[in-house]
Nucleic acid binder design. Structure first.
Lengths: 136, 136
DNA sequence: CTTGACCCTGTAGTTGCTACAGGGTGCATA
DNA sequence: TATGCACCCTGTAGCAACTACAGGGTCAAG
């Protein structure tokens, strides 16, 4: 299949596929006589793996490690679990941090009475960290 | 005060202060005879405003608008409330999205029995989106 | 007089793409 | 046969919001 077909089959931008190849996440595919990239089911499966991992928020480097593991089925797989666990912890941290942030924003928003900017509670709150209840 | 003092006073990297100046978020300060930047309380207050807004996740462009409002106290301030509300909505979206993600990751993590990568449930789950319960 | 901490400008790197510019290929239609 | 259009190629530059140098100047203490 050509790059456009792979793009449609996986919901991945054509430019992104070429980018993944450039950074070595996808192997260089065979080329047609016209120098067009030609992909098979293995390429497709690998790209699906990459996209799915990206959707789950893994970084390119994490995905690289996960691909290395999956390329060598004789390796110990606790490493994969370690990467995923570390990522889960990061996501949970991020949620906690955003929740604090949301609470502060809620307190700030809606204090506006529609008056002049000079009296605006929103702007005042941004200028003065001590009005915040938490370390965000 | 010199840039290093302002840096310590606000917990902002020196390079970041110069960056804010370059993109027009902070005004160009006066210079000493040795061409050192020289800041006063107004600069400091403005930088505190910027940093606090950044900590709350506002983009530079949003901060630019908020600073414009705060620079002209006769303007209507509903705009400030609108920016903050839109940002709050974005944060809430992000939290919801990360929560889905966290749930999927939790299901994936810990399925590893410490065997070989060839049988790894973690890697398998990443390769196969259909094992997921939600659209993430 | 030298050491070290600070300051300056300008540029390049980071992450994960995305968007051209400027060209070539391949197939259907007039 | 011409020509239009969708697709493909490479290479480079842009995005956000910084961060990290390189290569130089300034200043006070010992």
């Amino acid at each position: 299949m050509k790059i456009g077909e792979l793009s449609r089959a996986t919901g991945t931008n054509v430019e992104t596929i070429r980018y993944y190849e450039r950074i070595g996440l996808l192997p260089e595919p065979a080329r047609s006589a016209a120098n067009y990239r030609s992909y098979g089911p293995d390429h497709r499966a690998r790209l699906v793996f990459v996209r799915h991992s990206r959707e789950l928020g893994f970084t390119i480097e994490e995905i690289r490690s996960l691909l290395d593991l999956s390329d060598d089925p004789t390796r110990d797989c606790t490493e994969a679990d370690r990467i995923a666990s570390a990522h889960l912890a990061q996501v949970e941290d991020k949620i906690a941090q955003l929740s604090l942030l949301r609470d502060e924003l809620k307190r700030i928003v809606g204090r506006c009475r529609g008056g002049l900017a000079g009296d605006c509670r929103v702007i005042e709150a941004l200028a003065d960290h001590s009005q915040c209840e938490s370390q965000h």
